[in-house]
Nucleic acid binder design. Structure first.
Length: 774
DNA sequence: GACGTGGCCGTTTTT
DNA sequence: CGGCCACGTC
């Protein structure tokens, strides 16, 4: 290697190294070979990565196009580009920055031929995938009552994460059960249909490049030569397929730097393998291992509390994070009567903070998306500007999807999903009968749906709707003219006008259709913006982007509004003030993993890491809260127990919010008017500027408190009282099975899994709400 | 074929 | 409670 860090030994004063600690410098300077950076939460890893790239370009003279950096989100990639640009100027434009999926698309465009695709391939979203799977299930006589298409989607996704195609013997060896056998058949058909439609799914974006690179030595070598330095952020959340891809990309130069934190691995359900980071040094030998353990983000109070929680896990490397920051504010812990009160309490507290903290520096984290609704309600009532990540995305709106369907079909004439949507919107007298015939012909003749439709027309078999169908294709073909020369927004304009989408909304004339028209206009604006800023101004490039944007990508600190998001979305972000809500058994940890015998309690450990991720987002002040009763999706209020994780938060770091006279929310908002709730008082919630509380000592749950029974504001987990009166040894009645003996209770509330032995029927696992205690 | 209504089912987490 | 789907009617 022409350059190595030894060239610079002794010269440790350089603008790019200033302000970095010794470990961070080491991570910047260890440019050659395999490097594993174990970066604790808030340890300045983004800084390290950007400085490292800048160092490569500026000091080692590496051409930017020889550097590939993978991030977890597009937003992170964008920011990284900006920050490197700051340090090294215009050269940074040539860097290859992106998420695994965006890198995958780019590769696949080039490798399309080897993968059996046209470069104009479409990327199916979850929705398209679900529809296709539903169709396949129907065709294979798999009743939806038995297996849902979603389950097959999960199966396929898991297979692809492991780079296993439908014919892979390893997959067949593992097909033990009925479901797996059926799933394999569905998978095989799914792949056939996807290829006919010249379409790929998210899993393909990694798996297909891998399979091409595995087979085509020369292609692989050429590509790998270009990837002289490869960096990967959030490495703990990479899956097998992604690691495979990395191996091929780095096979020429072997300069791979991965950065991650095993304590923040929260995507195992998506196939992420912590093993990738744990066994990295064995796979790449020798590996330079650097630990970043100094936290620059949070107060020591927040850091201690977070650490205490994650220390409950047995399977971890065990870093020791430290900080020189002061104690700062105590953590506020609040127990609210109900979920709605909790949401109001958040709103109320934010209101009190206004003026002291920018709204964009405040975030609320929750375990499931369902929790967002109550919060949204409260933010609206309190008139607090907010942004909700993971809500109904702009690109998920019906009218936008309609327009995009047309666009997709223009770019990829075989896009079956796009065709099926476009041909019925706006309504043109083509319905299920015609489309069923088209699909039947498609599978008979091995054609994509649009190709099959054209084929029927050619043979004069279009049925009664021949003319309508012919007119549709005439329209499409006309629009396709000059596609690659036009900017995305120009094509978009053409689509809106000629498809009749705009007209049909105008004709409707309702207030909602007005909104929808505006959304379409917004879509054009987004296309235009893309055409201005992206590498390629084409519609194809725009569609690619649409398919791969994440919610977080839209997060914008310039806008003065607080953020609501799931704990998963919080990864990689930081805020001055945070709220972690819904800390209840069944929610966090989630009910689905509470019977921890499954997978050795590994799921439970992931829940704990998830909370750790959420807790380590705060710079200055953290609020933890739970509701004593939470409304279920069916409208029933269920009693809850505080999360077991709360017990691990050292009591001396916490100030319990005293909540007096918290008015019941039942009468609010009845008149339809926006009414301000009257909140009697919130005292001593540790808002800024208030005197420090007297530190409390001992653990959050002292034995005395446990013995004394639940004090009003102190979380106590009483495991003797489980769900709705069910306890092992007791009796339960089921409408069909009659009376039985309860063997086991897992979970809480109406969703608890109760194991019951019914005489004559045997042992059944039943959800609590279908049972009555007897 | 388009549109309305009633029944049912459901909530982890996401690129 | 609310969204989606299957079914029924025009």
């Amino acid at each position: 290697m022409a350059f190595s860090q030894t060239t610079f030994s002794g010269s440790d004063s350089h603008p790019l190294l200033d302000g970095l600690n010794a470990d961070q410098r080491a991570a910047v300077l260890a440019t050659e070979g395999a490097v594993l950076v174990l970066a604790g939460a808030g340890s300045g890893k983004t800084r390290v990565i950007t400085h490292r790239i800048a160092w490569l370009v500026d000091q080692l003279g590496v051409p930017a196009w020889q550097i590939l950096a993978m991030t977890f989100t597009n937003k992170a990639a964008r920011e990284m580009g900006e920050r490197v640009g700051h340090a090294v100027g215009g050269q940074s434009r040539d860097l290859w920055l992106g998420t695994f999926h965006s890198v995958g698309v780019r590769l696949l465009r080039q490798l399309a031929g080897w993968a059996g695709l046209q470069p104009s391939f479409s990327i199916y979203d979850t929705d398209d995938q679900g529809r296709l799977l539903a169709k396949i299930c129907k065709a294979q006589n798999i009743p939806e009552s038995h297996y849902k298409p979603k389950q097959f989607a999960t199966f396929i996704d898991r297979a692809k994460n492991r780079c296993l195609g439908p014919d892979d013997p390893r997959l067949h060896e593992q097909a033990y059960g009925v479901f797996e056998k059926k799933a394999l058949a569905v998978y095989a058909q799914y792949e056939r249909d996807m290829r006919l439609a010249n379409a790929v799914d998210f899993g393909d974006l990694i798996m297909l490049p891998v399979s091409v690179l595995a087979k085509e030595q020369e292609v692989c070598t050429n590509l790998a030569r270009r990837c002289r330095y490869v960096l990967v952020d959030e490495f703990q959340d990479t899956n097998f397929a992604q690691f495979e891809l990395l191996k091929y990309l780095t096979s020429a130069h072997n300069n791979l730097c991965v950065v991650g934190d095993d304590d923040q691995s929260i995507y195992s359900w998506r196939g992420a393998e912590v093993g990738n980071i744990l066994s990295f040094p064995q796979m790449y030998d020798p590996t330079t291992v650097i630990k970043l353990e100094r936290n620059y983000r949070s107060t020591s109070t927040i850091l201690k509390a977070s650490t205490a929680v994650v220390q409950g896990n047995r399977n971890r490397h065990g870093k020791v994070l430290w900080t020189e920051a002061g104690d700062g504010e105590p953590i506020t812990l609040a127990a609210l009567p109900s979920d709605r009160d909790e949401a109001d309490w958040v709103a109320r507290t934010v209101e009190l903070l206004r003026g002291q903290v920018k709204l964009s520096q405040i975030a609320v984290f929750y375990r499931t998306k369902a929790c967002s609704r109550v919060l949204e309600d409260s933010m609206r009532r309190f008139r607090l500007p907010y942004v909700l990540l993971g809500g109904m995305k702009f690109y998920e709106r019906a009218e936008v999807k309609d327009a995009l369907a047309w666009c997709r079909l223009l770019v990829n004439p075989d896009d079956s999903a796009g065709f099926l949507r476009a041909v019925t919107s706006p309504k043109r007298g083509i319905g299920d009968t015609t489309l069923d015939a088209v699909q039947a012909h498609a599978s008979r003749a091995n054609l994509s749906a649009p190709a099959a439709a054209r084929d029927l027309l050619r043979r004069g078999e279009g049925g009664r709707n021949r003319d309508k169908l012919a007119a549709f294709f005439h329209l499409i073909d006309g629009m396709r003219d000059g596609l690659d020369q036009l900017r995305a927004n120009q094509v978009g304009e053409r689509v809106l006008e000629l498809s009749g989408l705009r007209k049909s909304l105008k004709d409707e004339g309702s207030p909602e259709s007005q909104d929808r028209l505006e959304n379409l206009q917004q879509l054009l604006a987004a296309m235009s913006e893309h055409a201005d800023s992206a590498d390629e101004p084409t519609l194809r490039s725009f569609l690619e982007n649409v398919a791969l944007v994440a919610d977080v990508d839209a997060l914008n600190a310039d806008k003065e509004r607080m953020a609501l998001m799931t704990m998963h979305s919080a990864k990689g972000l930081e805020f001055d003030v945070t709220f972690v809500v819904g800390l209840e058994e069944g929610l966090c940890p989630h009910a689905n993993v509470i019977n921890e015998s499954a997978r050795d309690g590994r799921d439970l450990e992931e829940e704990r890491r998830l909370l750790y991720v959420a807790m380590t987002r705060a710079r200055q002040k953290m609020h933890l809260s739970y509701a004593k009763q939470r409304r279920r999706f069916d409208g029933l209020d269920m009693p809850t127990q505080p999360s077991r994780f709360l017990q691990q938060v050292p009591r001396e770091l916490v100030q319990v919010a005293r909540i007096h006279d918290w008015r019941s929310t039942s009468s609010w908002g009845a008149g339809g008017d926006v009414t301000r709730p009257t909140v009697a008082s919130v005292v001593r919630t540790g808002t800024w500027g208030q005197p420090r509380p007297t530190p409390l000592t001992g653990s959050l749950l002292s034995p005395q408190q446990r013995a004394a029974g639940p004090a009003d504001d102190v979380p106590v987990i009483d495991r003797s009282e489980t769900s709705g009166g069910f306890r092992p040894g007791g009796k339960a009645r089921h409408t069909r099975f009659g009376l039985g003996q309860v063997l086991d209770v897992a979970g809480y509330g109406g969703e608890a899994q109760i194991t019951v032995n019914f005489p004559g029927y045997g042992v059944k696992k039943v959800v609590a709400r279908y049972l009555t205690p007897a």
